Amino acid sequence: MQFAPDPDFYSVVEVEISSLSIGGSPRSSGESREHVELLAAATGPLPPIVVHRPTMRVIDGMHRLRAAQLCGRRTIPARFFDGPEDDAFVLSVRLNIAHGLPLSLPDRKSAAEKIIESHPDWSDRLIASTTGLSAKTISELRRRTAPESPCVARIGRDGRVRSINRVSGRTLAYDLMTKDPSLSFRHIARIAGISPETVRDVRKRMHRGESPVPAGRHKRAVPGELPPAGPVDRPAARRALEQPPAAIVDRLKADPALRLNENGRDLLRLLNIHTIPREDWVKIVDSIPPHCAEIIVQLARGCAQGWRECATRLERKISKT
Rank of each mutant, 00 (worst) to 15 (best):
S19H: 11
L314K: 08
L271H: 11
L70P: 00
R64A: 01
E16N: 14
G209K: 02
T131W: 00
G169W: 01
G30F: 00
L260H: 15
A215Q: 07
R143Y: 13
D124F: 15
L126N: 05
L70D: 02
V161Y: 03
V36L: 11
E197R: 14
G193W: 00
R316E: 15
Q243H: 09
V213A: 04
G23Q: 09
F80W: 06
P245F: 03
A4Y: 09
L101D: 13
D280I: 14
A311V: 04
L65N: 02
S25Y: 00
C310W: 15
I127T: 00
C310G: 14
A78P: 04
P102I: 08
N272A: 15
P223Y: 05
V199S: 02
G159C: 00
V282G: 06
E309S: 12
H119Q: 09
G216Q: 04
A257W: 08
G132V: 06
A135Y: 08
G169I: 04
C71E: 13
Q69N: 03
E31F: 15
L268C: 00
P256Q: 03
V90I: 10
R234W: 04
S139F: 13
Q243K: 11
K253L: 13
D121G: 03
V167I: 13
I318W: 04
R200S: 04
E31C: 15
A41E: 07
P181W: 06
L39V: 01
L105W: 14
I116Y: 02
P47A: 02
E197T: 09
Y174N: 06
R278G: 05
A254V: 05
R79W: 02
S123A: 10
W281N: 09
G132M: 06
R239T: 13
Q2W: 08
K136A: 10
S104N: 10
R160W: 07
R301Q: 15
R66N: 05
G23W: 11
S21F: 07
I273Y: 09
L271P: 10
E309W: 12
K114H: 03
T137I: 06
H207L: 03
G209A: 01
L95P: 08
S25P: 01
L91F: 07
A189D: 00
L103M: 01
S211V: 05
